[in-house]
C-alpha cells in the first residue's frame, strides 16, 4: 500500500495525501471487478444452488470480520488524535481478529462436505480463497504498520500508512459482505 511519492514535500504544489487516497480508491474499483467477476462466475455455474455449509461458523467469522473493521476504525481515529496507546491496541485487535477470521476459513475448508473437484466446491474455495488471500495480505500490511507505530513513527499529521492500511481493511471487509450471502445464505 505504500504508494507515497518520493518527491513528497519536494514539490509542495501537489497534495500527495490526496493522490494516495484517490489512487487507493481506483485500486479498489479495479479489485471490485475481480471480486465481481468471481461472484458472477458463481451464479453463472451454479445459479442459486448451494451445497450444505456450516452456518454457525459462517456467521461467526462474518461477525469477527465486521468487528475487526470497527477496531481498525478505532485505531485510525486514535492516531488522528495522536493517541498512540489506543491506536496500538486497535491495530493489535484488528490483526488478531483478522487471524481468527483466516483460521475460521481454514477450518471451514477442512470440514467442508464437498470437494474442490465439483462446481460448487470450485467456486466456494476460489471465492473464499481469493478473499482470504486479501485478508492475509491485509494482516501483513497491518503488522508492518503496527511495527512502525511501535517505533513511534506516526503522528496526527503524518499517518497515511495507517489510514491506507485501514481503508484496505474496510474494503476487504465490504467484499465479504457480498460474498457471505452469495456463499452461505442464498436458497
Amino acid at each position: 500500500m505504500a504508494v507515497v511519492s518520493p518527491s513528497a514535500g519536494a514539490h509542495p504544489v501537489h497534495n500527495h495525501l490526496q493522490f494516495n487516497r484517490v489512487g487507493l480508491w481506483l485500486f479498489f474499483f479495479s479489485e471490485s471487478i475481480l471480486f465481481g467477476l468471481l461472484l458472477s462466475a458463481r451464479f453463472f455455474l451454479e445459479g442459486i444452488e448451494r451445497e450444505h455449509v456450516d452456518q454457525h461458523l459462517g456467521l461467526a467469522i462474518t461477525i469477527v470480520l465486521l468487528l475487526s473493521s470497527v477496531t481498525a476504525f478505532t485505531a485510525e481515529t486514535a492516531i488522528e488524535h495522536d493517541n498512540r496507546r489506543v491506536a496500538n491496541w486497535g491495530l493489535i485487535a484488528t490483526i488478531v481478529l483478522g487471524i481468527i477470521f483466516a483460521a475460521g476459513v481454514g477450518f471451514e475448508w477442512k470440514t467442508a462436505e464437498f470437494t474442490r473437484h465439483e462446481a460448487f466446491g470450485t467456486v466456494f474455495f476460489t471465492m473464499t480463497g481469493i478473499h482470504a488471500s486479501h485478508v492475509i495480505s491485509g494482516i501483513g500490511i497491518l503488522i508492518l504498520v503496527w511495527v512502525q507505530l511501535l517505533r513511534g513513527r506516526f503522528s496526527g499529521k503524518d499517518h497515511w500508512p495507517v489510514a491506507g492500511a485501514v481503508m484496505y481493511w474496510h474494503f476487504v471487509d465490504v467484499v465479504w459482505v457480498f460474498f457471505y450471502p452469495a456463499l452461505y445464505l442464498v436458497k
Binding site: A41, E46, R116, H117, E118, A119, G121, T122, F125
Partner: peptide
C-alpha cells in the same frame, strides 16, 4: 494445478464461462 472444475462439464463446469 488445483484440479478445480470451472471448465469441466462432467463436474458441473462450463467452458463458455
Amino acid at each position: 494445478v488445483g484440479g478445480m472444475a470451472f471448465f469441466k462439464p462432467e463436474a458441473g463446469g462450463d467452458p463458455l464461462l
